[in-house]
Design a protein around this nucleic acid. Sequence first.
DNA 1: ACACAGATATATCGGGCCGATACATCGGCG
DNA 2: CGCCGATGTATCGGCCCGATATATCTGTGT
Lengths: 187, 187
Amino acid sequence: MVPRRAQLLEFAVLGLLHEGPTHGYDLRRRLNEALGPFRALSYGTLYPALKTLLGRGLIAEAPDPGRRGKRPRVVYELTAAGKEHFADLVARADSSAYEDDAFDVRFAFFARTESEVRLRILEGRRGRLEDDLERVRERAVRSRERLDSYTAALQQHGEERAEREVRWLTELIDAERRHPTDPGPQP
Amino acid sequence: MVPRRAQLLEFAVLGLLHEGPTHGYDLRRRLNEALGPFRALSYGTLYPALKTLLGRGLIAEAPDPGRRGKRPRVVYELTAAGKEHFADLVARADSSAYEDDAFDVRFAFFARTESEVRLRILEGRRGRLEDDLERVRERAVRSRERLDSYTAALQQHGEERAEREVRWLTELIDAERRHPTDPGPQP
DNA sequence: ACACAGATATATCGGGCCGATACATCGGCG
DNA sequence: CGCCGATGTATCGGCCCGATATATCTGTGT
């Protein structure tokens, strides 16, 4: 069963736990470190997501390595089922991998993704942006004069942002084709 | 009571209905025309939102101007309360006006916003982006080498996108200061 | 010594918004 | 005449966010 919506957090939690067991607060910090301040994920989703993953047996509670006298934390670790599930997710390159919100999170775990899948995700996203660009340009010719100046400026800016991302993706795709590096843990 | 979340659709519907009564399908099309294909809003929110607005008396059903023989549509028009409510929303320049998702929609209705408010929204958004940029740059110096190359590339790209938007906002702010045009209906 | 701020840590609630889906009518095309 | 894409209204499940509550720990200033 393919999840329709992104389930970004589940994916991210499973990915992060590959680096070893941790607790919720640290997961959220590491996640936002990886995504940057322009794309954060909130606690309001994280803690419920952890419970869901626990209930599905994809993660398990691990003993908190004692910190002499400090308040104990709830530490989670990956189960075998969790590892398997993440491997399935990470091998997937359908639209749920390059749709707006999903792409960043998927990209953040490219180091754990096979080169071939990386390539398909990058190309999928680029194709999507190019489709949108074509549509907006086509419309721009015949209808931009009907818009007020602010709306026109907004579209212009959106167009340029998409064009930039397409160029960025193209660079990455070219680099990926030249050096199809294998996945593996990186510092 | 200030709405915590954006309620983008309510705002947009009220704004669009200032141009005359229409039906749901047309509202969604006009909205996505204004926002561009990179930032669409869905039916799944629109029709429920229309009902909510109807229940609150901010919009009302209007007679469908007959289209001889065609299937009738559900046409809505603004009420006096709706106009008033929109005026309140549009005069607001707090964080709910320049937070990520909200900004685009707010911007799309700048033609109906007072120059002073426009300026505060633009500056608010720029300030927010600059804060984020400062944080990410500060961290970049001491920790970017700890990240794998993909995560680093993602952050780099996010940084550049934010820098571009800051420059764009600055241009708009300067233009707004030079020519503080009044709000009014534009073609 | 004490207060106070800010980071650490877990958790819940309400609700906005999305994607998928269903169903029906209409116009144009071959 | 049949098919397809656009028009049109509507609902459902569910991801995710922001606000909020609570409690402990650490650092700083005084």
